[in-house]
Design a protein around this nucleic acid. Structure first.
Length: 567
RNA sequence: CGCGGGAUGGAGCAGUCCGGUAGCUCGUCAGGCUCAUAACCUGAAGGUCGUGAGGUUCAAAUCCCACUCCCGCACCCA
């Protein structure tokens, strides 16, 4: 049987992530993982914090902490936020783990053995006052082409020309501002990507028809422009040390070890229960594994070119990705989420405002699958109020309350399905089939449209069956209608669980089905809709499932997070 | 000519790969119902698909060409 390996792009360690990070990789990956588990598949869902690199060092510096303490703290913060969002990682690891260090060094050795690594001496800028080498982008100075005074060492943002740090006039450190800089020779390792070109091109070709356009177009662009040898080491202290003589005090480039952490995190996972878990079976010569990666578009070059190149070059049968689900950006009122401008809402803030399912639902209904999509509080409120409150919440509420008040708080007995019921079930069946198909294909927007339509069918049926009228003339028939409606509620919990797990749980509790699980329905719903038998007691809700977001709340949120209530 | 992505009723989207005169959600208007969170259900109005009295075709939102506008690629950040 196929086993499903799922990874989400690793969130970077240097701070709490915003909604876009959540909606653009971790959350859709979670929905897919949950869906497959409900279908009874063997799933391993892996994520981790990406902890190396200069930004982590600088963020730690700013907080006056040593990098390791900083990372440990930030890792815990992020981990707890994701738990609160009910992200169902089998393991949420750390790229600074010993497992990752070991694997990264292993790959480096293999690549050296196979002749894909070259050693070169390059000139690096060293800041005497900072006591460290500075990456290109942390050197600022005057652009020799246009005279712009705040040009960075890698590119001038004014004239967009690509620069070398040594081109800059009056260079200084972006960290301290010190102009006491020296150019030093430094030995580094380069990954010979050009040697991998044909193999990578074949790899992309192989998947071209299947993968999203945003993925293949970015990958092809890189190939078309020609691959260059890529430096995979850095003059930093924080990171995975390079297992080679003469490279003491140097570490791997963060983008070299980060994807390897997918494997590393799996090893971390296995180590917690070595008796029953075998990380290698998921990654090495794993022919029965289907591997899906989730990421936003900025990550695509690393996952279509760099990481596969590493795996190919090892010469070992490491598992390569089968499907890449790539996303565009989620924007905030059409613009970028911005820390410094206080634009946008961060994951911790989001949880302080509303229950996780509100966010999960909106983000999945508006996933930037084909184009960037824009978050606005008005849209958020409208979607939550309509779909979750009026359509789903109201359906659950009206059925439970009516049954309890007219008959009693248990599934009523009597009556047989009529043509109306059979037609309703057929409609549901078709929609559930489509919904299942969309989830399997990771077509999330379409899936959510379908899920909503499934909820609407319930209300539709109630209007057609009108149990509140029927009960006066034919109590048996009314009992049958409500029995079916109660079973539909249960079905909704199962179908909604991948998207809004907390709500599914609430519904199961209302139905006294707390440990019943969420096994995905079969194609034929006949049996499924008779799961709850006559006499099965349920709880009458004191409150509806959800509460609406008022216009005043929208105004308030906009004021606090930088949005426009009219948009 | 830097790269990439967009442009479809008031708003947000689908349809474009495999051409055959537009579909969904919200909003608006009208009606139905009264079990339910003034919720639910039904119907209607509203677009000729960025521009070019361009090209191909019996036929184009859908293929080809030219142009225009918008958004990312620049601190923070994905």
């Amino acid at each position: 049987m196929t086993r499903y390996l799922i990874t989400s792009a690793l969130p970077y360690i240097n701070g709490i992530k915003h909604l876009g990070n959540l909606g653009g990789s971790m959350l859709p990956a979670d929905v897919y993982a949950r869906f497959l588990r409900q279908k009874g598949e063997d799933v391993l869902f892996i994520c981790a914090t990406d902890e190396h690199g200069t930004p982590a060092e600088l963020a730690a510096l700013e907080k006056n902490q040593d990098v390791e303490t900083f990372c440990t703290e930030q890792h815990e913060i992020q981990k707890s936020i994701y738990q609160r969002f009910h992200l169902s990682f089998d393991h949420f690891g750390r790229s600074s783990s010993s497992q990752n260090a070991e694997l990264t060094q292993h790959f480096c050795k293999k690549l050296m053995e196979n002749g894909f690594i070259e050693e070169r001496t390059i000139k690096q800028v060293y800041s005497v006052d900072d006591g460290r080498f500075l990456p290109d982008r942390y050197i600022v100075g005057t652009c020799p082409h246009c005279g712009y005074e705040a040009a960075r060492g890698d590119q001038c943002e004014n004239c967009t020309r690509v620069l070398d740090p040594t081109d800059l006039i009056n260079p200084r450190s972006a960290v301290s501002g010190s102009s006491n800089l020296e150019i030093k020779d430094s030995k580094h390792l380069f990954l010979n990507l050009p040697a991998m070109e044909s193999k990578l091109a074949a790899f992309i070709d192989e998947h071209e028809a299947e993968w999203p356009i945003v993925v293949t177009s970015i990958a092809r662009k890189w190939l078309k422009e020609g691959l260059r040898e890529r430096c995979i080491t850095r003059d930093l202290k924080w990171g995975i040390s390079v297992p080679k003589e003469g490279f003491e005090g140097k570490v791997f480039y963060v983008w070299f070890d980060a994807p390897i952490e997918y494997i590393g995190a799996t090893a971390e996972w296995a180590e917690k229960d070595p008796e029953h878990r075998d990380w290698k079976s998921w990654w090495y010569d794993a022919k029965d594994v289907r591997y899906t990666e989730f990421m936003a578009k900025d990550n695509i070059p690393f996952h279509t070119i760099m990481f596969p190149a590493t795996l190919f070059a090892s010469g070992e049968p490491w598992k390569k990705v089968d499907y890449i689900k790539g996303f565009n950006w989620l924007t905030f009122y059409g613009g970028k989420f911005s820390t410094s401008q206080k634009r946008g809402i961060f994951t911790n803030q989001a949880l302080d405002e509303f229950q996780p399912d509100f966010w999960r639902y909106w983000l999945m209904a508006n996933t930037p699958e084909n184009a960037d999509s824009s978050f606005t509080f008005s849209s958020f409120a409208a979607t939550i109020n309509k779909d979750l409150n009026d359509v789903l919440g109201n359906f659950v509420n009206r059925v439970l309350k009516m049954t309890a008040s007219k008959i009693g708080a248990a599934v009523p007995a009597g009556g047989e399905w009529t043509a109306v019921e059979k037609e309703f079930i057929q409609t549901l069946q078709k929609r559930v089939t489509d919904y299942t198909k969309y989830l399997s294909e990771m077509e999330f927007r379409k899936a959510l449209t379908e899920l909503r339509a499934i909820w609407v069918e319930g209300n539709n049926y109630l209007t057609a069956a009108a149990p509140w009228t029927v009960i006066k003339e034919d109590p048996e028939k009314a009992a049958m209608i409500l029995r079916l409606a109660l079973n539909v509620i249960r079905l909704y919990a199962v179908l909604s669980a991948p998207i809004i797990p907390e709500t599914a749980e609430k519904i199961q509790k209302l139905l006294n089905l707390e440990n019943a699980g969420y096994a995905w329905p079969k194609a034929d719903l006949t049996e499924e809709l008779q799961t709850l038998k006559a006499g099965h007691a349920f709880n009458v809700p004191e409150q509806p499932l959800f509460q609406k977001i008022t216009p005043e709340a929208v105004t308030d949120l906009c004021a606090r997070y930088g949005g426009n209530p009219d948009e």
